[in-house]
Amino acid sequence: MGEAWKRFKKDRVALVGAIIIATISLAAVFAPLIAPYDPFEQFFEGLTIEGAPRPPDGEFWLGTDLLGRDLFSRLLYGARTSLIIGIAANAAAVLIGTAFGATAGYVGGWVGIAIMRFTDLMMAFPALLLAIALAAILKPSLWIVALVIALVNWVQTARVIYTQTRALVEREFIEAARAAGAAWPRILMVHVLPHLVPHILVWATLGISVTVLLEATLSFLGIGVQPPTPSWGGIIFESQSYFLSAPWLVFFPGISILVVALAFNVVGDGLRDALDPTQRGRD
């Protein structure tokens, strides 16, 4: 691991990504201290007489949204939504994916075939339609949105872990453990899983960017986190009808989503290179 860290430190792009993630996480945690206003308060003076939002100025740094709320404060709190969902949903997805992938890979046989055919099926499913349908059934809240995303996103991880486990099973030390009479769940936990950790770590990082994007997309379609909880995608959804006259309402949250997704992507990529030099430069 120490070796890996050294390699990671040399990857400047990934390092910048990590710094960005750290900064945004801090901003999210300390949002109540940083935010100039209550993100939920609809200010009377936050709207013009005709009901249009206010552009950025000294009073509202990034302007107001269509309900007269301070956009900057909402963006800060929106970071919480994005990160919580991003991390929770992806952790769940990686967990499900690893469980299915490792089981299928190790046990093989009918169970393995069944699981892998099921992932084939999920791959053929238009993921966004699936998420929309699930969101309609489960009446979205923060955790439900996370669950929906996890249910859609575990497949990729399952496939990668499956391939890695298949490769591991052939190795001698597994054979040895099996010969020693260890039960398969134990072998899986003690001997197989530790070797999968680098892959899980990489997918856990890369996956967050996918999750953040999916959350934003669901919110943009009006089926994500419920209002008035601030969410970057949700801010754009609410402002869409106004964006030609108030483009900042799309621009700022849009950039936020992009930056967070990008940061997790480059860090994940850096991790992959660092943890597995043989894979360096491959995808």
Binding site: S209, A216, Q240, V250, L258, A261, D269
Partner: peptide, 21 residues
């Protein structure tokens, strides 16, 4: 490669709205 990550990380609805704008 960083630019390709920008493409991957860009939410489509934001790209679309900005292109329109």
């Amino acid at each position: 490669m960083v630019f390709s990550f920008v493409g991957i990380s860009a939410p489509q609805f934001v790209v679309g709205l900005l292109l329109i704008y």
